[in-house]
Simulated assay, not measured.
Amino acid sequence: MKKIVQLFVGLWVSVNAFSQTQTVDLALQGDLLSVEKTPIGYYFKDMYHVLDPYVGTWVFTDGTTQLKLVLQKKMSNRNNVFFQDMIYGEYQYIENGIEKVNTLSQLNENFSDCGFYSINGNLVVLHDSPLCFGCEVGEKTLATGIIHDESESIGRLLLKRIIVNGQPALQASMGWRLRWKPAGTVLPPNPLPARDFILLLQP
C-alpha cells in the first residue's frame, strides 16, 4: 500500500511540474540564464527551427584525411533544471588513412541528457557576436562543445552553414582548451587538430 501511495504522489508531482512548464524561445535562453536564478521547469524551445539546418551527416575529405560529424536534434532535453532543444552528435577522424578516433557508435546510446554525447550545444549566435568570426550581416553560427574522452580534452566547435559549389556545407572551427592535470598524469594525446574544416552535407 505504501508503494502505491508513493507512486501516486510521484505521478502527481510530475504532472504538476509539467503543467507549470513555461515555454520560451530558445533565442532567449542566454538572457534568462544570465539572471541569478532561472525558474525550474523552463522549456527553451527551438520555435523557429534555427537548429534544423545543422542536422545531418557532414564530411570533410582531403586526400586520405577525413572528418565526419553526425549531428542530430533532441527535443525537450532535460538537464535536471530546465528543458531545452539541442543539437548533439558524434564524430570520426581519419588521418593519412589511419582512423584516429571514432565515437559514432555512441549515437546508439539513448542518453537521458545530451551532455553525455561527444558534441552538444544549442547556442546560435548572430554576426555581431565574437563567436561568429567572419560572419556577414544575417549569418549565424552554432556554438557547441566537443570532447575527446581518452585524452580528457574539451573544446569548442563552431558551426556555420555555408554553400560550396551549390551544396550545403558546414564551416567548422575546432579549438581545444588545456585542462589542469595532476603532476605525473600521462594521457594519450588528442588526435583531433585545432583548425577549420569545410564539411559537405551527405545525401
Rank of each mutant, 00 (worst) to 15 (best):
S153I: 06
F133K: 14
V164K: 12
G134F: 06
E139H: 02
L158A: 05
D149M: 15
L158P: 00
E150L: 13
P130R: 09
I162T: 05
E150D: 11
G155I: 08
R156G: 08
K140A: 05
L157A: 02
F133A: 10
K140V: 05
A143N: 13
R161Q: 12
D128P: 01
S151A: 11
G166M: 04
L159H: 01
I163N: 12
H148Y: 07
I162H: 15
L142N: 04
E152L: 11
K140P: 01
I163T: 15
T144W: 00
G138N: 01
R161P: 02
I146V: 09
F133G: 09
F133L: 10
Q167I: 12
T141F: 07
D128K: 14
E150N: 12
S153D: 04
L170Y: 00
S153Y: 07
V164W: 05
E152W: 14
A169M: 06
C132E: 15
G166F: 01
Q167Y: 09
Q171S: 15
D149R: 14
S129N: 15
F133H: 07
A169N: 08
A143Y: 08
G134P: 09
L142D: 02
G138R: 13
V164C: 04
C132I: 13
E139G: 10
D128S: 14
V137H: 10
A143S: 05
S129V: 12
V164M: 03
H127D: 02
I146P: 00
P130G: 12
I146S: 00
I162L: 05
I147S: 10
G138L: 11
S129I: 04
L131S: 11
A169R: 00
V164A: 06
H148C: 03
V137T: 14
E150M: 09
S153N: 11
R156L: 15
D128Q: 13
P130C: 05
T141P: 03
P168F: 07
T144F: 00
G155S: 06
Q171F: 09
V164E: 13
F133I: 09
T144L: 05
I154A: 03
E136S: 11
Q167N: 13
L131H: 02
S153F: 02
A143R: 14
E139Y: 07
L170S: 00
I147P: 00
Q167C: 01
R161F: 00
L157E: 00
P168Q: 02
I146E: 01
S129T: 10
S151I: 14
I162E: 13
E139R: 06
G138F: 06
S153C: 01
A143F: 11
S153M: 03
L159P: 00
H148V: 01
L131V: 03
S153E: 07
K140C: 05
K160P: 00
H127G: 03
Q171W: 11
A169V: 04
C132Q: 15
A169C: 11
P168V: 02
A169F: 10
T144R: 11
I154G: 08
A169W: 02
F133R: 12
L157T: 00
L157W: 01
G166Y: 03
N165M: 15
K160A: 06
G134N: 08
L158Q: 07
G134M: 10
L158F: 09
A143M: 14
T141D: 07
C132V: 04
V137F: 10
E139F: 09
T141G: 06
L159M: 04
L142C: 10
C132K: 11
I163S: 10
L142W: 01
I162S: 11
A143L: 10
A169T: 01
G155V: 06
D149I: 07
